[in-house]
Design a protein around this nucleic acid. Structure first.
Length: 551
RNA sequence: GCGGUCGUAGCUCAAUUGGAUAGAGCAACAGGCUACGAACUUGUAGGCUGGGGGUUCGAGUCCCUCCGACCGCGCCA
């Protein structure tokens, strides 16, 4: 009997008991895993929620419900080692055999454990997106870790996920970029050539300018701005985007599409969005501009779509882009940077306006403060002190970066200590988890091959130690953890879960000798170790961290 | 000024979406290897969950109100 089945037997019995005694109530039985182990594996608060309308003390009600449920389903005694009423809660502890069954299932399903077949739901996910005016920085790193983990978790759960990066290459910032590169180009001939005030001062533009000089020599020196600007803008944009793509790939994050904003304009997509809002009667003209009635959807002011001269605004582009995504998907998720708080309601309002209320979720990847020990680094963008994501990856590696980015909840600000992330000796959480995996691998290498083979189908009855059962329970929890990650857009739970699995294994390892003399016990413990390795490796892979065989 | 996110142990963060005595890691202190990896583990100490009020069987979580941090508030992108 599986864990879920055992719980369902209990839930059905209680539901039946409630229906018999209080016909007007429907008594939904929800389970949760109590924080304190002495409260059992699962508990339910039916008696508490029912107490008021039933006019009974919760504790008395709980006692009655248990009695009645046991009469209705006598098999409960075999499935649960304890069912007890405590302070109105009903606390349940599953019989070891049920946990053994869960381990057997993990061994049988292997890497598929916890995954679900395709559910036909399409999800559009956008994250990481940056202006094509410079190298990726730490915030995009966090956004990419979050997005990639959500993508992995959703695909694991059977969703058809389409991942997009939007390149903000329309508008005047690209002109500023072109002028900046041109200035660098001219400075290679005459160092005193002035740099534009609104330019991008970073050194990273210098090599781009030099490559143009190598290609074209001085042919742009005497040219007018209208001649060189498009060329310099596009050259820089292309090189920077290629660079961003290289960084993303290095970070292990794959995109299905890099969507250029200017291409959306050229393809006429922007018009489609505006036309749709017009059809819906949600626009009006004023001062020659076209407005969207955003105030009808909880925004604090109406928003301009088309300027007086007919040029679309940035928001207009978002209308078009989201209209397309909302039509094509069952769920749309945007992960935006910390400077977009004010955008959440506007986009959700837009989603509702277009006829898809509730289909769009917007998550804000909160701010990252880079630290090196007690010292804050990379604070001043103006002084050219930016720390790029590539530099971070150079310093701490891909695994540590992913793990640190993913560890706090999405909406929680993060202090990222670069020094801590490379510590190999003590307090680094990345190594703690990876060490757990390496340790399992090491034990399995030392085990006799015959034992490992036999473990796959061995009897698990010898697993009765509390550390063994706690580990088994943790492993069995994996599918619901992944499901929760997807439902609540909470990728950090996966990283924390991996840490918990490692901790439970370490404790099991400390308290139970795996390669022990008794063959039955030895094989059962090897089986538990194999299951642990499978689940830990899978959890790590979903957050983009490697699971080393040795360290 | 308006709006958003946040405020939890000395530090970094959790808390299964309203559940039980608010939990981990690090730092501090005291233990554990003649056993499969001590990059591990056991224990102690550490809290008025920013302050105050409210809702109810029950609040870190929901409502109101102050305080504080960050971020938005353009016919920029």
């Amino acid at each position: 009997m599986e864990v879920d089945d055992a719980l369902r037997v209990f839930a059905d019995a209680v539901t039946g008991a409630v229906a018999a005694r209080y016909p007007s109530e429907h008594g939904s039985v929800a389970f949760e895993a109590p924080r304190r182990p002495e409260f059992g594996d699962f508990s339910t608060n039916v008696a508490l929620t029912l107490a008021k309308t039933a006019r009974r003390a919760p504790q008395d009600l709980a006692i009655d419900l248990i009695d009645e449920a046991k009469q209705r389903a006598p098999e409960l005694d075999g499935l649960f080692s304890t069912i007890e009423p405590v302070a109105g809660f009903i606390n349940l502890r599953l019989a070891p055999a049920v946990w053994h069954r869960a381990i057997a299932r993990i061994l049988h399903e292997g890497e598929r454990f916890g995954s679900k077949p395709s559910n036909g739901m399409r999800v559009s996910l956008e994250f990481g997106s940056a202006n094509p005016t410079g190298p990726l920085v730490v915030v995009q790193g966090r956004s990419m870790s979050i997005g990639a983990t959500l993508t992995n978790a959703m695909r694991f759960c059977g969703y058809d996920v389409f991942v997009e990066w939007i390149i903000n290459d329309a508008g005047r910032q690209l002109d500023a970029l072109g002028r900046s590169v041109y200035a660098r180009y001219r400075q290679s001939f005459e160092p005193s050539y002035p740099f534009p005030e609104d330019g991008y001062p970073g050194d990273y533009l210098v090599p781009i300018a030099h490559r143009i000089r190598e290609r074209d020599g001085d042919r742009w020196v005497g040219a007018g701005e209208s001649e060189w600007l498009p060329y310099f803008s596009k050259s820089a944009r292309d090189e920077i985007v290629a660079d961003q793509q290289r960084t993303a790939r290095r970070f292990g994050v794959e995109y299905d599409r890099w969507q250029s904003e200017s291409e959306l304009h050229e393809a006429g997509k922007v018009r489609e969005g505006v036309d749709r809002l017009r059809e819906l009667g949600l626009t009006y003209e004023q001062d020659g501009a076209l407005f969207f009635r955003a105030t009808r959807f909880a925004d604090d002011k109406d928003r301009v779509l088309l300027r007086g001269d007919g040029r679309p605004t940035y928001f207009c582009m978002d209308v078009a882009y989201h209209y397309q995504k909302l039509r094509d998907s069952d769920r749309v998720v945007d992960i935006l940077g910390p400077d977009h708080h004010g955008y959440i309601e506007r986009l959700k309002g837009l989603s509702a306006a277009l006829g898809f209320p509730g289909r769009l979720d917007v998550a804000i990847a909160q701010q990252v403060t880079l630290m090196r020990g007690d010292e804050q680094v990379g604070v001043s963008k103006r002084a050219g002190e930016i720390v790029t994501l590539d530099e971070i990856l150079d310093e701490v590696g891909v695994d540590a970066a992913h793990f640190f980015f993913i560890l706090p909840a999405v909406e929680s600000p993060l202090q990222f200590d670069l020094k801590l992330a490379v510590e190999k000796e003590n307090e680094n959480p990345v190594y703690y988890v990876q060490y757990g995996h390496a340790r399992i691998a090491s034990v399995l290498r030392r085990a006799l091959p015959d034992d490992v083979r036999a473990a796959e189908s061995a009897s698990l009855a010898p697993l009765v130690h509390s550390a063994e059962l706690a580990l088994a329970r943790r492993l069995a929890e994996f599918p619901s953890v992944v499901a929760g990650v997807v439902e609540h857009l909470a990728p950090h739970r996966l990283a924390r879960y991996a840490r918990d699995v490692a901790a439970d294994f370490h404790q099991f390892y400390t308290e139970c000798k795996i390669l022990t003399g008794d063959a039955e016990t030895r094989r059962a413990r090897i089986a538990l170790s194999l299951a642990s390795k499978t689940v830990l490796a899978r959890a790590l892979s979903l957050v983009g961290v490697s699971a080393p065989e040795s360290m």
